[in-house]
Simulated scan of single mutants.
Amino acid sequence: MAALPHEGTSGTESRDERLARNVSELLQELRVAQAGVQFLFGFLLAVAFTEHYARASGFEQVVHLVAVVFATASVALLTAPAAWHRLLFRQGQRPQILRVANRLMVAGLACLATAMVATVLLLFKVVAGPVVATVFTVLIAVMFVALWFVMPLRTRADDNGEEDDEED
């Protein structure tokens, strides 16, 4: 395969160099996402041990559990690519690692967005009531969907598939 030019590099980059860079970039992106999900997960775990939680309505407890389940799924999905990378390190599996890790990360981000939206619903319901909670939850959900999924997918569609999935 011919070497491909890349922004920020001098000259061209070989397929192996590109794959190594893509794995490195993916792992760095995962570090950013993991920090947020770990913070959220800790918060959600702590909430269950508060006095207010014991008095929470059934709806509030269900929303909390939904948030915990999706935060847990997000932790699993967002840490899986690091495990794949470590277990397949130097096995010539970078293309497979990137393909699987990309899917796991997108699924992990979807779970993280769901956990965040459920957490917003829970907090706003307790603090501001059901009407305000509904409005803000819908706004937050739309924001996540637009910023994390719709806008990037529209940009990708506008490129008419010019970039390879293993590229940036």
Rank of each mutant, 00 (worst) to 15 (best):
W84L: 13
W84T: 12
F70R: 06
R156M: 04
W148A: 03
Q38K: 12
V47A: 04
F49I: 04
W84E: 11
R99M: 10
I140P: 06
A107V: 00
L65D: 14
T114W: 00
H64W: 15
V47Q: 03
N102P: 08
V120M: 03
L109Y: 12
G129P: 07
F70Q: 06
A67R: 04
L121G: 08
A141R: 03
E51V: 08
E60H: 08
D159F: 14
F144E: 05
A46C: 09
D164L: 00
R99D: 06
G161Q: 04
V75R: 06
A56R: 09
R154N: 07
G129Y: 09
L121E: 09
G36Q: 00
L87R: 12
L104I: 08
R99Y: 14
L98H: 00
V63N: 11
L98A: 01
W148C: 01
V117P: 00
V117E: 04
A101M: 00
R55I: 11
F149K: 11
Y53M: 01
Q38W: 12
N160V: 13
L122I: 10
P95M: 05
R99A: 09
A141G: 07
M116R: 13
F136N: 07
F41V: 10
A76V: 05
L104F: 07
G36D: 02
R55Q: 15
A118H: 00
M116V: 13
D158K: 15
R154H: 07
T137E: 02
A110Q: 04
N160Y: 15
H64C: 10
L40A: 04
G129F: 07
L112H: 11
P130F: 12
E51T: 09
L77A: 12
P81L: 02
A128D: 10
L123Q: 06
N160R: 15
A67G: 11
G36Y: 01
A46K: 07
M105Y: 12
D165L: 05
L88I: 04
A107G: 03
A80Q: 02
K125F: 15
L45V: 13
A73V: 02
W148M: 09
Q96D: 09
A146F: 14
F49T: 06
T119A: 05
L87N: 12
R156N: 12
L45R: 14
L139R: 01
A46D: 03
W148S: 02
H52N: 13
L44H: 06
A54Q: 11
R94T: 05
V62S: 13
V138L: 11
A146Y: 15
C111V: 05
A80W: 01
V150K: 01
G161V: 02
L44G: 04
F144D: 06
E163F: 14
V132N: 11
A128K: 08
